[in-house]
């Protein structure tokens, strides 16, 4: 474990909203090349953990590093897929324009995307099977197509580390399969993926590492040995969803 270099790591990260602690002393470590699932009940601070690590929320204590460096120095190596609910789907932008946004980081201030950037965006859309929808407005897509469009944007960024906030929320089986294929490809290329997920039953289908979070880290590490009944029960503190899952799992 210790020999694997870390793609990202947080040390003693605590976040407080007003005077309510959201995260307490989180030491979160993601080995390079792993697919890490973050699971936990609603309000466990899953999205906050990502935001705090990326400097979007100011932590009260602690800090995060990416490939051993502060985030500001390695921005271009980190990609991001937002939670579907936080997107303005009526925004007048097409699928191809969305994917082109993935190139904005390397373009820097003022420079505009040109033919090369559009070609890269198109290639990414082909990878997620969205090339036929390039000129659709994003609100006209189905749930699965929407997520695939955003996945394409993340692919255009060509990062070494992906953060995805509930990428399988509200999508059809076909889209889910297509996305998992892409994730497996990325993983095979040695990319690191961090996924916020809330469907307990399917976590181990595509994650080799799991972190159980409920304001603090309950357990974190390789999938099967971390994702145990006891740990799940502790993370969910007898919430209904987990009980049902545990009963089903026997």
């Amino acid at each position: 474990m210790t020999s694997t270099p870390l793609a990202c790591e947080s040390q003693d990260l605590s976040v407080v909203y007003r005077d309510e602690p959201v995260l307490r002393h989180v030491n979160f470590r993601v080995p390079t090349g792993s697919v890490m699932g973050i699971v936990g009940p609603n309000g466990a601070g899953k999205s906050t953990l990502i935001k705090a690590m990326l400097g979007l929320v100011k932590p009260l204590t602690g800090h995060a590093t990416f490939f051993g460096q502060p985030f500001g120095d390695v921005r271009k190596r980190v990609g991001y897929m937002p939670q579907s609910a936080s997107v303005d789907w009526d925004f007048p932008t097409t699928v191809i324009d969305l994917a082109v946004m993935g190139t904005y980081g390397e373009l820097g201030w003022i420079r505009r995307p040109g033919k090369a950037e559009r070609a890269r965006a198109m290639a990414a859309l082909e990878m997620t099977g969205m090339q036929d929808f390039a000129s659709r407005q994003i609100g006209e897509l189905s749930g699965g197509q929407r997520q695939r469009a955003f996945l394409a944007r993340a692919l255009v960024q060509a990062p070494d580390l992906y953060f995805m906030d509930e990428p399988f929320q509200g999508i059809d089986a076909k889209s889910q399969q297509a996305m998992i294929e892409v994730l497996k490809d990325l993983s095979a290329q040695g990319k690191t993926i961090v996924i916020v997920h809330h469907h307990l039953a399917s976590v181990l289908d595509f994650c080799d590492h799991v972190t159980l979070l409920n304001k603090r880290i309950i357990a974190s590490g390789p999938g099967p040995e971390t994702f145990t009944k006891d740990n799940i029960r502790m993370a969910y503190e007898a919430s209904d969803g987990a009980e049902a899952f545990l009963a089903e799992a026997g």
Binding site: K51, L54, G55, L56, G72, R75, V78, Y80, P82, S86, V87, D88, F91, T93, M101, Y104, G105, L107, W109, I110, R111, R112, P113
Partner: peptide, 22 residues
């Protein structure tokens, strides 16, 4: 016109905009 790209990204996806260093 000059800051078109930045205005667009900040309006549509403020999180990504900040992440990318704008």
């Amino acid at each position: 016109v000059v800051f078109w790209k930045e205005f667009t990204l900040r309006s549509f996806d403020p999180v990504l905009s900040t992440m990318l260093g704008f």
